[in-house]
């Protein structure tokens, strides 16, 4: 079965960890994840500048590893990302900002990518809130 997963919360929210464990269980059961869409505060998970306290798990890094390892389509909503200061090199240059904090495996794109994922997938599962 094909899954699309949308994440609305940042890496420090319990729901982000829940989404990650769910996504791992999806693959463990032989299903496919057609796209992970990071929306609203979920875009913070894709920032390369997140530093977790040493005694807490680094969920942002775990997301990056998960997306890289399984070569998944990790899409970050561009409008949500720009307003939260999550920029790739191209956007940093376009808006004359001093630094970029988003790189591979993440990709900035529009809300249309969520819509397309929903059309492609059999299930859309959203995570957010606490």
């Amino acid at each position: 079965m094909k899954f699309a997963i949308a994440l609305h919360s940042p890496a420090h929210a319990p729901s982000s960890r829940r989404a990650l464990l769910f996504a791992k269980a999806v693959l463990a059961q032989g299903h496919e994840i057609v796209r992970l869409f990071f929306y609203q505060d979920g875009v913070h998970s894709a920032s390369g500048n997140v530093v977790s306290p040493q005694d807490e798990s680094d969920t942002a890094a775990q997301w990056r590893d998960f997306v890289s390892t399984h070569k998944l389509d990790g899409v970050v909503c561009i409008a949500a990302a720009l307003r939260r200061g999550v920029l790739n090199a191209e956007e940093a240059e376009r808006y004359s900002r001093p630094a970029a904090n988003l790189s591979a495996p993440w990709e900035l794109s529009g809300l249309g990518q969520l819509h397309e994922a929903v059309q492609t997938a059999d299930r859309l599962i959203c995570f957010g809130g606490p």
């Binding site: 609305h8 464990l21 269980a25 059961q29 859309l124 599962i125 959203c126 957010g128 809130g129």
Partner: peptide, 19 residues
């Protein structure tokens, strides 16, 4: 558990998260 969560999401036609 999480495997059961996935099984439930396959079993039901839709999953609606109360965000």
């Amino acid at each position: 558990d999480y495997a059961g969560f996935v099984t439930l999401s396959v079993h039901y036609d839709k999953v609606n998260t109360w965000l």
